[in-house]
Each structure stands twice: as C-alpha cells, then as structure tokens.
Amino acid sequence: AEDTGVRVELAEEDDGLKTSIALKLWVEDPRRLKGKYRDGGAIEFTFDLEKEVPEAVAQEMVESGFFHESDAKIVGKSIRDRVALIKWRRERTVPRAP
C-alpha cells in the first residue's frame, strides 16, 4: 500500500470469518497532514468489511475531532488500502476453523 504517512493496521487477528474487524490507525508522519493531528495516539475502531465505507469512517474521525476536514481524504485512503489488503488476503487463504 502506498505510504500516506497515516498507518492502519489490524488491531486483532483476522480469522477470515468475522465481518467486523478491529483496526488501529495512527499518524506516522504528521508533516503529511494539512491540519494538526490532535491526539498523537493510535485510534482503535471496528470496521464492518461488508457494509461500511472507509471514507465514511474517516469523516466520523474528523467529526470526532481527531483530524482536520482537509485530511479526511488521506485518512480515508489509508483505511481503504488496509481494508483492501485484508479482503485480498482473505480471498487467498482458507479461513481457519474457530
């Protein structure tokens, strides 16, 4: 995935079955952001792989005061890249039995 300066990673192991997965997002390179990154911590949230849209979550983060509106695009893209990777891997691996 392209390095946007905003990092998104799995916050839990992906068994390949659950639709909602916990992700963790943090800013590795604040200079890449237009607005100030308020918190400096990692933000953990759950994301529904089937129903939800990365850009909508990014907008919720802006509305929750984590990011400036002008950074919604870069945050949305970072989430989108990670979600795409999760889905790509799932297509290629047989889910482990619970």
Binding site: R7, E9, K24, W26, E28, D29, D39, G40, G41, A42, I43, E44, F45, T46, V57, E60, M61, E63, S64, G65, F66
Partner: peptide
C-alpha cells in the same frame, strides 16, 4: 494508561491508546 474513548454520534466507538512503540518510524 487508561485508553481514552470517543463515541461518534453515529455510534462508532474510537478508543485512543499509545502508538505501538515498535511501529514508530525511526527518524
């Protein structure tokens, strides 16, 4: 350290915790 939480009006919970140390990019 206690993780801070922000619940968005749409109901999503955002839990803020320290950035994983090992993942910080070495400047």
């Amino acid at each position: 350290s206690s993780a801070a939480q922000v619940v968005h009006s749409a109901g999503r919970r955002f839990i803020v915790s320290p950035v994983p140390e090992s993942r910080l990019r070495e400047q």
